[in-house]
Amino acid sequence: MNILQIENLTKRYSNHTALSDVSLEVPRGSVYGLLGPNGAGKSTLIRVINRITLPDAGRVLFDGKPITDEDIYQIGYLPEERGLYKKMKVGEQALFFARLKGLSRRDALQRLKKWFIRLGIESWWDKKVEDLSKGMAQKVQFITTVLHEPKLLIFDEPFSGFDPINANILKQEILRLRDEGATVIFSTHNMSSVEEICDHITLINKSRNILSGSVDEVRRRFGENIFEVVYGGDKDSFEGVMQPVAEMLSTAEVADSAYHTSRIRLKDTATVRESIALANDAVELRSWSEVIPSMNDIFIRAVEGKL
């Protein structure tokens, strides 16, 4: 079952439409990427999910039922910019946010201790937030987001401000939370992180959902029948036999070997099987693999309207 189901959301502000007829489904236990250029409507969507703003039309189902104020205890939200009181001490602040999320003081303290030790920041408890670096503050904020063990986590650009080591720690923690049963929604521009950890994505552009699906499926869908072939033998004879079924894009010699690598685009009439058979007769095939576009390419093509 889907933990979150969004049906035909529309949200208008006085001078622009932030969401128009957006629908999507977030499967339980998945890591869901919410992509889109700046100003596309991602933040508005997150706000609607968080019940910060109410939509003009459409509805949000949480666990199969229309979402209520009680459900926000089940959601953890990490905004892109660090939202912490600068003058407040780290520990007190974390306690404050935890209690706002409905934890008792004792529970909150216990869990905070555990998390502070896990992320190696026990010594910051009495520091003021203004004395922390951006990455350090983000760690504190991360803890306040996940502390009440929400079923649904929403992260807005969680890795910005982190060095690679800490980004990796955070990534592991996020995946661990997913393994423990949480569902994670990511809002991000960082496409490599999408490929690494997202199972599903939705791409929002100009207030509309223009692309939804599992990452593998989307990438495949955007494949353009391009293959990379590595082979030993004569380059010209390979090109000769492939002429009827494919268009040659490029060929290169593999360094320090007798092999060539060619990129070809199969014609719509040709099948992979038939093409391999043809090539197999002419050269010694080493590998035949499909070139799948990166999420980055798909993002740019989708946003620029070249679908």
Binding site: I52, I72, R82, G83, Y85, K86, K101
Partner: peptide, 17 residues
Amino acid sequence: EEKGSRVLDVLVSSVSP
């Protein structure tokens, strides 16, 4: 200050404005 530091964004995900 709360608005500028985006604390508000976090707060309103737990309490109503």
